[in-house]
Amino acid sequence: MNSAVQTLLIGLRTTISNIRANKQTFLISVMTIAISVGILGVFLIVFFNLNGLLASWNQHVQVVVYLGDDISPSQKSDLKDLFKANAKIQSTEEVSKERAWQEFKLQQRDSADLDLGFNPLPASYRIRFNTSENRSLHISEFAEQIRGEPGVESVEYGEKWIVRFEKFMIVCRVFLLGVGVLLSLGLILIVSNTIRLSIYSRQDEIELMLLIGATPRFVKIPFLLEGVLQGLSGSLLSLGLMGAIYIYLKNEFQPSLESIARGMDFQFISQPFLWTLVGLSVLIGFVASYISTYQFMQALNKR
């Protein structure tokens, strides 16, 4: 067998006996990781679902360019050229005065016999944009650009609150990042403390190992493994539990959710983020135990 693998296996044996000897601190550490990952996970779920909501709203956002009744054919074709030149535009739809009136009458069905004797509604272009990162920015830029064009009476686009909601989502992202960083730092402190306890319970043994020719790496491996194991079991425990709760809630409430907002789907944390969370916890465990073993070795060498 490969000697690096053997070193790891021997290390793992020590790790397991360390965990057995300090069961309680290990469990507390794992629980803390699980709770932190849980907090982050719940935030992520909320974030993803808001994001999904935003995306589905965004699909309906369009810019409507109202035309003056006196617009000339050449002004019209200038406008069309402008639309064509804009790569962000997905589609344009021309709505004549007549069609606008038909649609309006259709909406006001109870007063279908409405007849003013003239058509008060302007002709317009309905413009849809490609989905992209800065879609709302493109939309507002385009609206500003088109507003001053000759023949354009006014420009209306997306409800303002969608823009505000998008800004809120950016704040959410920053908030999530902040929470993630804070929790990570806290976890590093807690895990490194657990590992330190583990190291000190084996202090004599470690010193002897070094005196009889063990490499520093050989001495460190069991503790690094312990940290990694804490990160792994904490995150898996947490995500497993959340997954189970998610499936339960989805089965219970998805139908009523769909009746509130059509097409809305209650989402779990997306796969890449799931693996990121597990990876992050493992990394935290590793970094924390690395810090502890490093400090211990430094102290040992200073003497």
């Binding site: 070094l210 009889i212 520093p216």
Partner: peptide, 20 residues
Amino acid sequence: DAGNIHTLRRSTGVIFQDYK
């Protein structure tokens, strides 16, 4: 230093005064 002292210690068998 700490990183390579094991090379020396592996060629040395030590009986400590307090056994360890």
